[in-house]
Amino acid sequence: MSGGEPVIRVRGLVNRFGADLVHDGLDLDVPRGEILGVVGGSGTGKSVLMRSILGLRRPTGGRIEVFGERLDDPEIAQQRMARRAGVLFQDGALFSSLSVIENVELPMRTQYPDLPRQLRRDLARSKIQLTGLPDSACAKMPSELSGGMRKRVALARSLALEPELLFLDEPTAGLDPIGAAEFDRLLRTLQQALELTVFLITHDLDTLYAICDRIAVLADHRVLANASLDEVERLDHPWVRDYFQGPRARAAHPKR
């Protein structure tokens, strides 16, 4: 499915917090229709990279293009991204004062204010069903749901505007292994059906092995590698070695 222009193209990105240099000349391409897994130790700036691409943070330097457009001004970036990209934040970031279905309706309400109420409700309901939640979940408040269900609602909300691009920040963090595997399968199914391009930050090796087409490793302030899992595994870098050949990696790898 890949080929053609990358959906996201980052060139020479620099991000600095005071004296702390997070990114220094970071380059990254995200090809269309693939799931890119972004890994890296704590503090290597995975979330900062995502926030820069989304326009939630103005980078110190460098260039970011999404769908072939330069997004230098965060305000313009946010406007553009609102309709074409969905985001699943780490803890779901559901609005706690709105019910599940209202949470999913909210993006449509703001971006397509003309949608009739009933149609909006039907569309929101179909998104909730797509993420595998029962109908009875619609009227509940986020606080009444389990962690796994909240993640699904957040996913439904991020899909509400039919995005082509999906950002996921540690989608399986805090889920039990079975719930995490189910969520991985759901992501893969939806990604293929809706032809999504996915930017996925994760620590979960199972997720990497199960659903990622390609892995980007963040280390030493830049992208160390952006390639298939096999190639990344063979990389000779201390962090990569520890990460992919530690005891957890061996347990997660299907071949070993």
Binding site: Q118, R121, D122, R125, S126, Q129, L130, G132, C138, T189, L190, Q192, A193, L194, E195
Partner: peptide
């Protein structure tokens, strides 16, 4: 086909 099937399987579109 794939989008349609995904939606067709997951959603029962009785009016809420």
């Amino acid at each position: 086909q794939r989008v349609f099937e995904a939606v067709d399987q997951a959603c029962d579109d009785r009016p809420a």
